[in-house]
Amino acid sequence: EITLRSSDTHPEGYPTVVAVEAMGEMLEERSDGRICVEVFHSAQLGEEKDTIEQTQLGVIDLNRVSLGPFNNIIEETKVFSLPYIFRSTDHMHAVVDGEVGADILAEFSNHDLVGLAYFDGGSRSFYNSKKPITSVADIEGLKFRVMQSDVFVDMVDALGGNATPLPYGEVYSSIQTGVIDGAENNWPSFESSGHYEVAGYYTLDQHLIVPEVLVMSKTKMESLSAEDQALIRQAAKDAVPVMRDLWAKREKASEEKVRAAGVEIVDDIDKTPFIDAMDVVYEKHVTSDKLKDLVTRIRAVE
């Protein structure tokens, strides 16, 4: 009798979409069919910035979103968008599953939201059409498309590259025609966008490993019984391993396809000089004590 409307900008069959559907199945089973989840995939209800507002207003109940749009709303979330903040995907999982993750998730409740769980957004690395990047020096002068965000622009600048904000849909032809030299993304996007057809070099520097979140409308959550609230929180937690498993499979499939296409993969670079180059970026963007403290705590996580 309770239908939770959930938004996702990814298409049908995408790991995050399937994971929320799986969460719905768990809920339906555990509540004897009382609670179900309806997923509106492919941005049917709007882009992330809009659906966040809709969730805050209680118009929709659940929402799977990236952390980027929250950076201007919840300061703490910025820490996850810092370049090279995570050493590896395992490190990221350890952080979000631990205390730091819980603390940041708790911040959402100050903004009419309930943070339920972290999902994976993959690890982003550089690809280009010119040459294999094995050191920071190789990036010098290359034009990379980045997302519209000050941190990402500053990151590329700090590495000596040329940050060029472009709409995602224009990237393929822009690399093809040499307007830009490359872009950066995770395995699945590198593959599904077809960018690997025009950018033959992929360097796994994993500069960004940004998790995503599943949030719920606070109004909706508080209108439910304590028992139902617990059911929802648990189901969201249980959807995380489902999501990680699907994501790993998807990543692997994409990697195989890209490798089979003959893209040259650089997967053994020394990341230290890249990380050192980020000092200026951290200086500019990690200004508050809150963020400085979070950076220290994240680095301390094994």
Partner: peptide
């Protein structure tokens, strides 16, 4: 019975598109 503000949020987002 939804908040009507959504209509105007959609209107504003609908016209704030670079393309």
């Amino acid at each position: 019975g939804l908040p009507p503000v959504v209509v105007f949020q959609r209107l504003n987002s609908g016209i704030s598109v670079f393309a």
